[in-house]
Computed example of a mutant assay.
Amino acid sequence: MRFYTRMPKELVPYFDKELEDYKIHFKAGQLQMAWRHLERAHIIGQAYPFHHSYVHWKMLLFGIHIKDTGEVIGQIPRLLIGGVKSFVGKIPVGNTGGADVPPLKPLPISEDLLEVFKKSGVRPIE
């Protein structure tokens, strides 16, 4: 069994860019676009415990900000368990991380994010 601990350095700039875009849109009040960038950061970071948990933390804070009880309640178990699942490499690849998506359901990854993985030389679960 392989344990996943660190995000490959080739992926870090893409992950960071999604979080930066999230902040920009959030501050501008463009909440739908902000959320979209959190989902994209989740897909990029979900195989790595710290990054995965960090995105769920941001999603929890987002849910609190927009007063979405369902999102807040849905993020709590994801925040507690997501990092552990990442550590042992048992993630639903492509899952966007929001409470509106079953936590164990794999989803297709958009072409542009597949290109991110390809450019970085990292498979979505590596």
Rank of each mutant, 00 (worst) to 15 (best):
T69N: 13
L61I: 02
M33E: 13
P8E: 02
V55M: 07
L11Q: 01
E126M: 02
R78D: 10
E10P: 01
H65I: 12
P102A: 07
S110E: 06
K85D: 14
H51L: 01
G97Q: 01
I109F: 09
I109W: 00
K23L: 11
D100T: 14
P77R: 03
H37R: 15
K23P: 14
P49T: 04
H51F: 04
E126A: 01
L61E: 12
I81G: 10
V72S: 05
R6D: 01
G63A: 12
M33K: 00
G94F: 04
F62G: 10
E18M: 05
G89L: 10
Q30T: 09
L80G: 02
A99L: 09
P103H: 00
S53R: 01
W35P: 15
Q75F: 03
F3S: 07
H65A: 15
N95D: 05
I109E: 03
V88K: 01
K85Q: 13
P106N: 05
K119P: 11
M33G: 07
I76K: 08
S120E: 02
F87L: 15
T96P: 10
S53G: 10
A47Y: 00
L80M: 15
P8C: 05
L113P: 10
H25T: 09
Q32K: 12
E18Q: 04
E71Y: 00
F3C: 04
Y22C: 13
L19A: 04
Y54M: 14
W35M: 13
E115W: 07
V55E: 05
P106I: 09
V88W: 08
E20H: 03
H56M: 14
G98R: 03
H65P: 15
E18S: 02
I64Q: 12
T96A: 08
P124F: 03
Y4M: 11
G45K: 00
V93D: 11
P92D: 05
E71P: 06
I64V: 15
L80Q: 05
Y14C: 06
G97C: 01
I125Q: 14
D21L: 08
I109H: 06
H56S: 11
L11K: 00
I44R: 07
L113N: 03
R36Y: 15
T5H: 13
L114K: 13
T69M: 15
T69D: 14
I91W: 01
G83M: 03
H25W: 10
G97E: 01
A28E: 14
K27I: 15
S86D: 05
S53F: 07
K58C: 13
H25D: 14
G98W: 02
